[in-house]
């Protein structure tokens, strides 16, 4: 009975997953035996040292690169079996990189999130417009919608891109280091928004980050990527296991479990 219930709650799972890159001559494995369960309505942060393979893991989960071994299931169906258009209806992404130069307004960017649902010319129906308005209301960016995308700040653009992902109406949103270019106030605002979205819309939001102390405070669960293992659990449980001290291979940092922060030795 318990087993069936959990099966329904899991929206994305990895089974004995190995990630890395394959070329004709060689296979570079970055990590193996990854077993993750990302559940509905949870904000999940992915943390780990620079270059350890966070991006590779995110790319594999989003289907950009194929797994080396094992499999990923999305709503109990193999990720590989999704057609690009069907996958676009279940999984959306938000990246850190700048948009190419264009005349796009914030509204048009958000509207592009409706592309998986529109006809061959991209005509917006009334339903599309309702979804766009909902996304704008949830992210509270009504005052920005008519601005061009290069007239707004990095933080505002991040939020506009999140609104675009919301308009895409997917069960999962994956963000690659969304807080990187932001100051502390905007980091907090953005994470509060992500937390609100997971709890109000029941989406799974997975994001990678280097702001470990913020992730400990805000995320429902953490995925900790260390050279030896990849562990997923609630922040308080992870602190007790002492895994944060194995996160970085350095003598200069130590993790203070009492305040949940790193200190310089």
């Amino acid at each position: 009975m318990y087993f069936i219930m959990t099966q329904q709650n899991f929206t994305i799972q990895t089974h004995n997953l190995s990630i890395g890159y394959k070329s004709k001559s060689e296979m570079i494995t970055i990590a193996q035996n990854i077993n993750l369960n990302l559940e509905k309505g949870k904000l999940i942060a992915l943390i780990g040292e620079n270059g350890i393979g966070k991006s590779t893991l995110l790319k594999t989960i989003t289907g950009i690169i194929p797994p080396l071994f094992g499999k990923i299931t999305l709503l109990n169906k193999s990720l590989q079996s999704y057609k690009p258009l069907d996958l676009a209806k279940e999984l959306s992404i938000v990246l850190t990189e700048k948009l190419p130069p264009s005349n796009l307004t914030v509204y048009e960017i958000i509207a592009l999130g409706r592309q998986p649902y529109t006809n061959w010319l991209g005509t917006l129906t009334d339903e599309d417009k309702i979804k766009i308005e909902e996304a704008i209301a949830l992210t509270e960016i009504q005052h920005l919608v008519h601005k061009k995308h290069d007239e707004i700040s990095d933080g505002q653009l991040q939020i506009a891109l999140i609104a675009r992902a919301l308009a895409q109406d997917t069960s999962i949103i994956i963000l690659d280091e969304p807080t990187t270019h932001l100051d502390l106030v905007h980091k907090a605002t953005l994470l509060k928004l992500l937390q609100k979205l997971t709890h109000e819309t029941g989406k799974i939001i997975l994001y990678s980050t280097h702001d470990i102390d913020l992730a400990i405070q805000m995320a429902d669960e953490l995925i900790v990527f260390t050279p030896n293992q990849i562990v997923q659990d609630q922040p308080c449980n992870l602190i007790q296991t002492g895994i944060f001290n194995t996160l970085f291979d350095t003598e200069h940092l130590t993790f203070d479990a009492s305040i949940g922060k790193f200190k310089i030795k």
Binding site: T62, P84, L95, L99, P100, L104, I109, L112, Q115, L121
Partner: peptide, 23 residues
């Protein structure tokens, strides 16, 4: 004329375009 919709998606860059179902 047939690629107008994918062209609009490409305004966000290649990765976003693929993530919204563009081949």
């Amino acid at each position: 004329f047939m690629v107008i919709k994918p062209l609009n998606a490409l305004l966000l860059g290649e990765k976003y375009a693929q993530s919204i179902g563009i081949n």
